[in-house]
Simulated assay, not measured.
Amino acid sequence: MDRAGGPGDNLVAEHINEQGDPDFNVGGVKRDMPPELQLEQLASYIHATYEDGPNYLALLPDRITHAAMLMLGSAVDHAMPATKWAGGVEVRPHELGAVFAPSEPTGAWAVSVWDGPANAKEMLWRPDVAAAAELSGTTILDVDDPADAQRAVDAVGAGVVWALGDVALPDAACYIVTFPSAQPERPGLVQVRAGSGLAGTEYHADGLISTPAEIRRRVEEAATFLRSAPSASAE
């Protein structure tokens, strides 16, 4: 990657673990890197190694884990949210999608919504939903079809809607909006990509590529918001 020269060049060079460099080593260097440089290394490897296709998003979590182990080094925790936190979650079917019930439910309900393809929902989105459910004690109904989000809110009395990307938001008390392309007008937690120009909590991300650490941070902060949001009981 081309870089402009500057006073930080020596520090950057110390951390870089580039394929093709004679000093490249599998597992990376045994030191931590700034989050923005971790993302740069991770994203550059994924973009160079994998082609876009129907299964790209579904395979992305495994590819992120593999690339992080290869490029970011042994000093970094590579656990994904579902691996780290969602072991106690019960998943049960619902006519509108899937319910993620935490091991210690508080009685609060939320609805989550993303318009991604079905295989990506299962592999990329719903594991994060499950982890946030377990961390917060909130039972979350993730809808199969974004058009059913309002029905879902009404069915379970959800106090929070959590949306990934740009989808039509149903009526709810408050919202988590993750990676919108425009500033949401609804009250709540807005999670934005660093450098997007939008107001909110910033995370280093390239599209839906983030380091495992940033994914965990984003899910933890969604769970913190869910714990403090208005509670509602199921039907």
Rank of each mutant, 00 (worst) to 15 (best):
P54G: 13
A48Q: 15
L70N: 09
A48C: 09
Y56G: 15
L60T: 11
L72H: 00
N25V: 15
M69T: 11
M71P: 03
E51Q: 10
A68W: 06
T65P: 00
A67M: 06
Y56T: 11
E40G: 08
P34K: 02
A58R: 15
V76T: 05
A58P: 01
A58W: 15
P54D: 06
L59V: 07
A48N: 15
F24R: 09
S74M: 11
A75Y: 00
P35E: 09
P34N: 06
P54T: 03
R63L: 10
H47W: 14
A48Y: 15
G28Q: 07
L39R: 05
Y45W: 10
V29K: 15
T65A: 13
G27Q: 10
H66F: 06
R63S: 10
M33C: 07
V29P: 14
T49K: 05
R63F: 11
T49L: 00
H66C: 01
Y50W: 07
Y50M: 02
L37S: 01
I46R: 00
M71Y: 15
P54K: 14
A48D: 13
G28Y: 05
M33V: 10
D62T: 11
L42E: 00
L42I: 10
M69S: 08
M80P: 01
M71G: 00
A67S: 05
L60K: 08
L72M: 07
H78V: 14
A82D: 14
A68Y: 04
Q38H: 00
Y50N: 02
A82E: 07
F24S: 01
Y56V: 07
L72V: 02
H47D: 13
S74Y: 04
N55P: 04
L37D: 05
G73S: 02
Y45C: 03
S44D: 14
H78G: 06
Y45V: 01
A75M: 02
D62R: 11
P34G: 08
P34M: 05
M69H: 15
F24A: 07
F24I: 06
R31F: 01
A67Y: 08
Q41V: 03
S44F: 04
S74N: 05
E51A: 12
A68H: 01
R63I: 14
L57W: 12
